[in-house]
Nucleic acid binder design. Structure first.
Length: 871
RNA sequence: GCCGAAGUGGCGGAAUGGUAGACGCGGUGGUCUCAAAAACCACUGGGGGCAACCUCGUGCCGGUUCGAGUCCGGCCUUCGGCACCA
């Protein structure tokens, strides 16, 4: 036996043992209760793992190991979300096939993940880029298609000229591409859309079925954005057309003094008068050229142009002018609004700017000064048939909606902010669609037996530039035949977005090698739903919403048995890194103290010059008097920031380095000891030594300096027994609640106490090894073996505690006078109030304080506190 | 602007309405050593006092309570998300 704790020897040993014995194989249909614990699978990037990845993985691994010991049949799988832009970008730059890059990255990730001792069932590994996997992604797409949930549309999309591709809304941030920060403009293109809006209501309602953080549910609710109101038709003067609007404030209908159409609204053409046509067309063209960012930036000042046309306000018969303005979005509601300037801020601004009438219909504000958007009592709201005057807002809404319905010119309506899901990318490295187009452009879904439609080899990964994917250039792949008619047909050259593969991977884990079906129904029934899903909050909305949508479609198709896929969700908080920076301007460096920040820009205080921030990698920072300095300019003190880890900030911590220096068990423990799982917290490599010391101290409970085994079968002293049972209770409860940081603190206390004791009783140390095992599995297995066991401890029953042993016979109670602690008294744990009070009042200090005072009130909380109130 | 989360020592953090600061890092002193590292032991929120102790202290202002980091009302700051959504 080695003399010292040596993770570099014991960790590979146990990793090999677990792999060879398939210790963590999940058994289908086992009679034990099942527990499905899922990690968000990673995109295997070229940069390898950073310390953020193992945070969630360690948490789930601790829970998986704990649940096994509690008698559950645990499914804990891992896989790769491997389609996506970075591999393709790399292919464009180097000509390396993305499959090769992907394979290489997966190998690195897998090696790194395995070096941390996670108890995954590797026989269930999945890879979204494997044709055996994406065959079923394509198959699910066909299910969506056959249910009328996938359609082709010519829609204005976010076209990024620099990337040569179309981006999803969520990939555009402030009008620029999320990757690379290139400008994005709107351009109409033929796209696949998924009708997620058909499921809006259920996606909203069923949030009640799942145990997720309230904040995530709220984000999803906001994203779906349900609002209740009315649809109202406004006849256009001089035409047979109607303009339909959606409004949440039908009660303000009498105050509608003009209308606004989105620039893209189809009726603009019809309504515009010849005199106004040039102005309207110019406005439309300007709006089309604007990127989303430009539109948003110009939002400070409302713009718009009169069409020359008029509509009739259906409640009072008055003609009202129709305007075009880009603050009305074609993609929300009906793309047209009734403008009520008195009670809507945007309408008020436009009305003020162009001198349009403002008519108050809800009392409560001063509409001359600002729009009044709150509730109130209706005024000026009556015609021959209906009057809202005197009604409060909710009643007014109801009454006018009834009237509109009776007249057949409007009805109650629900609208969602959620849009249909733009489901195609003009990229090579993604799942091809199982669709061909006939010569007339009709899409034909390919029969299941044609799947998978695999990616062809290409010579260049460069986007075609026309907006089509590189696949469009491979004639022999694109040109095919319609399986129904045998006529020539062309393949769809778009590919699916990265979300596709991650929308259902949790189902493929159930039956990963099945080539006859995506999964066997009986296995789905056995394992689903996922009991615990852990991942980053960055997927709070999109991944989780998309996956829920697919799951509900599969549920409706009878392919899965639960309405929701993920019963419980936990978001691990991001781990931040320390970064260090200074500034340069006018050819010289400046300290952060010499610049002032204005938003994102920095200016030298002295000269006013614009300064650039420069980051110094963590490894190059020079420390003096605990302050960070520049390596080459010794006087230049650096600014310390805690920021998201990224290459450009030089603050990325590689878990390999931590494993090399301290071992995997120490890394696991440190990740969890950092703070609560869900909190955002900074990584400080220096303090890993604390948990590392704890593990070495644990080792020394079992071995002396000569490497002799010190554990004996002697009976344990009462104090140690009680300590053990308190520790079992605390670690059990905290592990269950995922309060891993405090569970570790309890184990540290245990080790500190036992270290001070002269004895090493097996009856205390053996259960402790089991408590430690989910957290530091390698060390625990090694100690378990040293204790004489031949089998892994992974399935040993979790220790139980005796409640009687967790409480002491004599307890120390604080005695307060007027809420301030003045003394400590020892009392029997089961003493009644009178006894406790008597002991407290008998204490010398208390006696002294109580002298010459009137005792007003005596508070005794058994086992907790005594408080004496005096005057 | 709207929605959500959070503000506690030098630092990460801990506290069913009941002794604020567990556990860890860092720091100070000591043991061991020729010396150092490692390890071990003790102390470590601020102020005052030789000491027993006293006093202040959980972002700010109020409130409820015998008792508030915790509950209530009103602010401030930071972070995350959304943002012309009619």
């Amino acid at each position: 036996m080695p003399k010292e704790y040596n993770p570099s020897v014991i960790e590979p040993k146990w990793q090999r043992y677990w792999e060879e014995n398939k210790t963590f194989r999940a058994v289908d249909f086992d009679p034990r209760p099942k527990y499905y614990i899922l990690d968000m699978f990673p995109y295997p990037s070229g940069a390898g793992l950073h310390v953020g990845h193992p945070e969630g993985y360690t948490a789930t691994d601790i829970l998986a190991r704990y649940k096994r010991m509690k008698g559950f049949n645990v499914l804990h799988p891992m896989g790769w979300d491997a389609f996506g832009l970075p591999a393709e970008q790399y292919a464009i730059d180097t000509g390396t096939h993305p499959a090769i890059t992907t394979q290489r990255n997966i190998e690195t990730f897998k090696r790194q993940i395995q070096s941390l001792g996670f108890s995954y069932d590797w026989d269930r590994e999945v890879n979204t880029t494997d044709p055996g996997y994406y065959k079923w992604t394509q198959w699910i797409f066909l299910q969506l298609y056959h249910r009328g949930l996938a359609y082709v549309a010519e829609v204005p999309v976010n076209w990024c000229p620099a990337l040569g591709t179309v981006l999803a809304n969520e990939e555009v941030i402030d009008g620029r591409s999320e990757r690379g920060g290139h400008p994005v403009i709107r351009k109409p293109m033929r796209q696949w859309m998924l009708k997620i809006t058909a499921y809006a209501e259920r996606l909203l309602e069923d949030l009640d079925l799942v145990e997720w953080p309230e904040s995530i549910k709220e984000m999803q609710r906001n994203w779906i954005g349900r609002s209740i109101g009315a649809e109202v038709d406004f006849p256009v003067q001089g035409h047979s057309a109607n303009i339909r609007v959606f409004t949440t404030r039908p009660d303000t209908l009498f105050g509608a003094t003009y209308m606004v159409l989105a620039p893209e609204h189809p009726l603009v053409e019809l309504i515009t008068t010849p005199e106004q046509r040039p102005a309207v067309q110019a406005y439309q063209e300007a709006a089309a050229r604007k990127s989303d960012m430009d539109r948003t930036e110009l939002a400070k000042e409302k713009t718009g142009v009169f069409t020359g046309g008029y509509a009739i306000n259906p409640v009072n018969g008055k003609p009202i002018p129709i305007w075009v303005a880009d603050y009305v979005l074609v993609s929300y509601g009906t793309g047209a609004i009734m403008a009520v300037p008195a009670h809507d801020e945007r309408d008020w601004e436009l009305a003020r700017k162009f001198g349009l009438p403002i008519v108050e219909v809800v009392a409560g504000g001063n509409v001359e000064e600002a729009a009044y958007t709150g509730n109130g009592t209706n005024v000026n709201s009556a015609n021959d048939e209906v009057s809202l005057n005197g009604l409060e807002t909710p009643e007014a809404k109801e009454k006018i909606t009834e009237w509109l319905e009776a007249k057949g010119i409007g009805k109650k309506a629900v609208n969602y902010r959620l849009r249909d899901w733009l489901f195609s990318r003009q990229r090579y490295w993604g799942e091809p669609f199982p669709i061909v187009f006939r010569e007339d452009g009709t899409p034909v879904p390919l029969p299941e037996e044609y799947l998978p439609i695999t990616l062809p080899e290409v010579e260049s990964y460069q986007p075609s530039g026309t907006g089509e994917s590189p696949l469009a250039t491979i004639e022999e792949w694109v040109n095919t035949t319609d399986p129904e008619t045998g006529h020539p047909a062309r393949r769809e050259t778009n590919t699916m977005p990265q979300w596709a593969g991650s929308c259902w991977y949790y189902l493929r884990y159930l039956d990963p090698k099945n080539d006859q079906a995506a999964w066997e129904p009986a296995k789905e029934k056995y394992w689903m739903p996922v009991d615990l899903y852990v991942g980053g909050a960055e997927h709070a909305v999109l991944h989780l919403l998309y996956a829920r949508f697919w799951h509900k479609v599969l549920f409706d198709a009878g392919l899965v048995s639960t309405p929701e896929p993920f019963m419980r969700l936990v978001n691990q908080g991001m781990i931040l890194g320390f970064s260090y920076r200074y500034y340069t301007a006018d050819g010289r460096p400046w300290s952060y103290k010499e610049v002032r920040l204005e938003g994102e820009s920095a200016y030298v205080k002295e000269t006013g010059s614009l300064a650039n921030a420069v980051y110094v990698p963590l490894s190059e920072v020079v420390w003096r008097d605990e302050k960070p300095y520049h390596p080459e300019y010794p006087e230049l003190e650096l600014e310390e920031l805690t920021e998201k880890m990224s290459k450009s900030r030089g603050n990325v911590v590689n878990p390999d380095d931590v494993v090399r220096e301290h071992g995997a068990d120490a890394l696991r423990l440190y990740e969890m000891f950092l703070g609560p799982l869900e909190a955002v917290k900074p990584w400080n490599t220096k303090t890993v030594s604390g948990v590392s010391r704890f593990l070495a101290r644990t080792w020394r409970l079992f071995f002396d300096e000569q490497g002799n085994f010190t554990v004996t079968d002697d009976p344990a002293p009462d104090a140690l027994m009680r300590l053990l049972h308190r520790t079992i209770k605390k670690v059990s409860q905290d592990t269950e609640a995922m309060d891993f940081n405090t569970a570790i603190a309890a184990m540290m206390t245990f080790v500190n106490e036992v270290t001070k004791s002269p004895v090493r009783p097996r009856s205390v140390l053996e259960p402790f090894v089991l408590l430690l095992s989910p957290y530091a599995p390698h060390l625990a297995e090694e100690l378990w073996e040293a204790l004489g066991h031949k089998e892994t401890l992974a399935y040993e029953p979790w220790p139980t505690w005796d409640e009687a042993l967790t409480v002491e016979a004599l307890i120390t109670m604080p005695v307060q006078v007027n809420g301030k602690v003045r003394a400590q008294v020892e009392v029997p744990a089961d003493a009644d109030k009178e006894t406790v009070l008597a002991i407290a009042k008998d204490h010398d200090r208390i006696k002294a304080i109580l002298e010459n005072k009137i005792l007003v009130k005596e508070v005794v909380v058994p086992g907790r506190i005594v408080n004496l109130v005096v005057k």
